[in-house]
């Protein structure tokens, strides 16, 4: 039922949590603008958006995984492995077109590996990907062999730094990825099946949904999106270091949870994920601008998770709030 109701949502239509996140973003922007004269500048806005690109792409994939009751804690290192492939291609002959393909391909392949263990091996996703996290990390070390890929040619950077009709390429890619995932989720049987699996895998199986196929494909989609994120990473930094992506998985999970996707599956919000990523980045940026040391940033992330979800849990208990919500 839940899934069917959500099918009616428009591309950018929003529910209660999503409105609160939007209000929180705007409120934060207003407060920071008052507190710091340097906040509301176009340069700073560009900085915030630029720093959200990888997390947005990975977050979209993570949204799908959580919505079907899965998870992937190794996703940051998958980005690292894809980045190594891109870096090697780029370093060999500087051909940016081949490099564009390398990321998504390696991402998809690793998605297949993860899916083989988790889906075909029927191992709980959190533990299975925890094991793979270790394996992938060793692969990163061995492939890099202690040397970073440094000073990569700028051909890929130049290609992705262009604008089409005045819109920067990264923004276009993110909008395209968003629309593609949204369409798959809300306008195809795939999305319906995904949410049904998230609600109850057992019931989904009994009603004839190809559970294994859907779950397998979702891990591959997440891998592809991560590969695209890796492409932007390499284009931006022209450097692949050993610690690449080590904090991304937990950040992505945090953003998706903030956005209102349930980790029990069955409920999912793409626009919520986008707003969750932006809220995290806006707060990290703004707090530094008003002089809070960067070491406090993880604390802010944690307080935000507990605060937002805790507040929702409490407010659900008061009938007045529910009444107001029903009327709205």
């Amino acid at each position: 039922m839940n899934a069917v109701r959500q099918l009616g949502n428009g591309v950018f239509s929003m529910n209660g949590r999503e409105w609160s996140l939007l209000v929180a973003c705007l409120l934060a922007i207003i407060i920071f603008s008052v507190a710091s004269p340097h906040y509301a500048t176009s340069g700073n806005a560009a900085t915030v958006l630029r720093n959200s690109v990888e997390l947005l792409l990975i977050g979209l994939g993570m949204t799908l995984l959580l919505a079907m009751g899965g998870i992937d804690v190794s996703i940051g290192i998958v980005m690292g492995l894809a980045a190594i492939a891109i870096g090697r291609v780029l370093g060999a002959d500087g051909n940016p077109v081949l490099a564009l393909v390398a990321g998504p391909v390696v991402g998809a392949l690793l998605g297949c590996v993860t899916a083989t263990v988790v889906v075909l091996g029927r191992v709980p996703a959190i533990v299975g990907t925890l094991g793979l996290l270790g394996v992938y990390r060793t692969a990163v070390f061995v492939l890099l062999g202690g040397q970073w890929l440094s000073g990569l040619p700028a051909s890929l950077t130049n290609l992705l730094a262009t604008t089409v009709l005045g819109v920067p390429v990264p923004a276009l890619v993110i909008v395209a990825a968003y629309l593609a995932v949204w369409l798959a989720l809300r306008r195809t049987p795939y999305g319906l099946h995904l949410l049904a699996i998230g609600n109850s895998e057992e019931k989904a199986r009994l009603s004839g949904i190809p559970v294994i196929k859907i779950r397998f494909v979702t891990f591959v989609i997440s891998g592809i999106l991560t590969g695209v994120a890796a492409t932007f990473y390499v284009a931006t930094y022209r450097n692949v270091e050993m610690t690449i992506g080590s904090t991304l998985a937990l950040d992505a999970i945090a953003a998706v949870i903030l956005g209102g996707t349930s980790i029990l599956g069955g409920k999912c919000s793409l626009i919520g994920t986008v707003l969750g990523v932006l809220l995290l980045r806006i707060l990290q940026n703004g707090l530094l601008l008003i002089g809070v040391p960067s070491l406090w940033q993880p604390v802010v992330t944690g307080v935000l998770i507990i605060g937002v979800l805790g507040f929702e849990a409490i407010s659900n208990r008061f009938p007045v709030v529910q009444l107001l919500r029903a009327r709205a």
Binding site: L250, I253, A254, I257, I263, L264, P293, L295, W296, Q297, P298, V299, T301, G302, V303, I305, I306, L309, G310, A313, I314
Partner: peptide, 27 residues
């Protein structure tokens, strides 16, 4: 008390506890 899922609640406190230990000592 708040009926938060353990994964979410302890992910939140993971960020808070480990971050606080670093921030109050400056490392």
């Amino acid at each position: 008390g708040l009926a938060l899922l353990p994964f979410i609640a302890t992910l939140g406190t993971f960020f808070v506890y480990s971050g606080t230990a670093l921030a109050i000592t400056g490392g």
